[in-house]
Design a protein around this nucleic acid. Sequence first.
DNA 1: GATGAATGAGTATTCATTCAT
DNA 2: TATGAATGAATACTCATTCAT
Lengths: 218, 218, 218, 218
Amino acid sequence: MPATPGTFLNLPEEKRKRVLEEATREFAEHGFHQASVNRMVSRLGIAKGSLFKYFGTKQGLFEHLFNHAVELFKAPLKDIREGTRDGDFFERIRKSMLAGVDFIEAHPRIYSIYLKMLFQENFPMREKLLGEIRQASTKFLRNLVEEARKNGQLRADMDTDMAVYLLDGVMDRFFQSIALPFLDSSAGLYRADRTTIENRLDTVIDFMRRGLSGTGAS
Amino acid sequence: MPATPGTFLNLPEEKRKRVLEEATREFAEHGFHQASVNRMVSRLGIAKGSLFKYFGTKQGLFEHLFNHAVELFKAPLKDIREGTRDGDFFERIRKSMLAGVDFIEAHPRIYSIYLKMLFQENFPMREKLLGEIRQASTKFLRNLVEEARKNGQLRADMDTDMAVYLLDGVMDRFFQSIALPFLDSSAGLYRADRTTIENRLDTVIDFMRRGLSGTGAS
Amino acid sequence: MPATPGTFLNLPEEKRKRVLEEATREFAEHGFHQASVNRMVSRLGIAKGSLFKYFGTKQGLFEHLFNHAVELFKAPLKDIREGTRDGDFFERIRKSMLAGVDFIEAHPRIYSIYLKMLFQENFPMREKLLGEIRQASTKFLRNLVEEARKNGQLRADMDTDMAVYLLDGVMDRFFQSIALPFLDSSAGLYRADRTTIENRLDTVIDFMRRGLSGTGAS
Amino acid sequence: MPATPGTFLNLPEEKRKRVLEEATREFAEHGFHQASVNRMVSRLGIAKGSLFKYFGTKQGLFEHLFNHAVELFKAPLKDIREGTRDGDFFERIRKSMLAGVDFIEAHPRIYSIYLKMLFQENFPMREKLLGEIRQASTKFLRNLVEEARKNGQLRADMDTDMAVYLLDGVMDRFFQSIALPFLDSSAGLYRADRTTIENRLDTVIDFMRRGLSGTGAS
DNA sequence: GATGAATGAGTATTCATTCAT
DNA sequence: TATGAATGAATACTCATTCAT
């Protein structure tokens, strides 16, 4: 059972949290291969053997981390999907993107890990893990798009697949533009504050609305 | 002369090419730290010592590669900067972006290395090397923007720095959207053909034109 | 604690001894740079990683060895310094030199390492390590000389520094003359037995007594 | 013909000198194994292949150097052996030692190489090369001692072998005491000037005279 | 369940020596 | 004769993983 997180779940909440935080930090700072299990355990003050008992391998630890992060990310989207079913489509998209911004600001290291993975083909399980995210994201957006179509909020001549693909691309790139300055000690220059971010977001939403909304001519 | 690549330049053209291609492949597939000099030489069928004679260190090899790539990238931009001085600003930007697309299609691995570097803070010389690219890119765009302003092709109320920054961001993200599918063996799905790319490019140029052109009200 | 030898001290006495003996042998036979960690571990039958766990680096191993040897060497001198405070000065010197001879006979390889270090400027930490020995030796001799002066056993017109310097030189050279034949598989010829050594020592002591003792005219 | 110095002897005097000086410097500074042929040729500005053409191997170069140095050292002793046959024995010894001091001051690097070799068992050809020196030195001293015995200048009860052995030891150690400060950047303190050296030499000669001269009682 | 010593294949790098030009 | 590119065995050192206690 390679995916079994071993004995980790039996640990006291507090310790579990410390372990995951430390691991997140290590992977975010060094990527997967350069991350050092030695460094983790010595900073945690636990035995090396323990970590391997918990997760089997370094990769097992990473996957646990990743899945945990995905859960964290999905949680607020649930409310949007279930709680605003009749609302304006673009308002729902806007809320989703704000949730994304919140996530990045609350867990910049996790987002940094995601970006590293996106551009490093040799991340272990890269295809599988990215696939899961894409699938979840696609499923979520498809759900929104289909309800929007029912409500006539979407251009009739745009098929669902394409709409989802475009939305996904725009959203992803928007998040990147928010996050990159976090990673770049060199740039710093243009790190946006919350107001700026929301303004940019409005522009983006406006752009989508023009491109996708039901009233739009060709 | 810190950039002196040792005895490498004395080698026959053919061999130099093979070496650089193999090294590019290795760095593109594994990033800097996971790239293995052992693997390179065994694939090249040359002695390990030879590679170190040529470049001194693994990092020296990487820097040579990088500088070589920067030259490759810059070359076509020269014609645009010098040869179309009176042309339409957005047409010049369009040509530049097409040159970028050409580069990515001709050297996807080099672009992949660039992306890795962008998202991996622990790449050696990252700040310096990215800085060089940023500087060259900024200088090129600033030149174009200033000439556009002279010709009244640019909104009067947009200062040069901001225009350059926006252009740079849009271009970078456009290139990424072209390149990502190349990296992703999983996706494949939506790898765009040339026509699609040019269509997308037109959309982007149109977007820029609306945002920046001289006739545009605030 | 820069001198912390990692996990080495947790090892069973027996293993620690084997490791130190093998390392001493390797350094004594080849000096620092030519000594091979590979050879050590393969002779010890342990993994390469283990040695580096214990000492961090080759140099760390050497320093541990060196400090250990210094302790071994100092131990018998303690009795002389503390236990014979009222005795004849030259008798105390004689005892010290006998202790030195004992050390060389018990640990010829350690003494050989010391000699190598003395004549090889590129030994790592040479200045520091030799400095430590010189300091300990100087302190010990200065103590003896000062007590001798109090008891009127020393020429009044010879200042303490000079006396210490001369004693140190004579002792060092005496030890060398004892040890050199140990190093020389070729010579063998004149390797002195214990009686001969003690006779030579008496001559040397006599020489010192004539040069330094309190009754000596200028 | 491993001992053949190859084509080296065909070189113009000037170049030969430069090569030997550079090699001497390298071996003196780093010992045999740490000496780098690369460094030598790059400092000399000649091709690596050339050096190997001249001497076959690094060891061949060293042996050539060594033999050359031995010739240099022997030259002045010839005059003493042949030109002062009836003079006072101890005066002849004194002259020999002065010649040694002169040599050390003129060629400190060569003497430094000799010392390194003395205490490093892993010097290549160590036994052979040191043996040659010992043999030459023994032969020279034996010659002097025998003539001294004929002239009644030597204690009758001291056999020739022992006399030679003692003289050799004293001389060697005297030279070392002169040379060590040259090697020791740390010490510096007591580097003797010429007058001091000659005073010390007088003391040593006096010491020998007391121990060995014909008038000395048992 | 926790520990941490042991492992060994892996890494980048050096350097005396060879040999085709 | 002189050159210098090519070689490859050697070096010190790292690190995820295992397992006896």
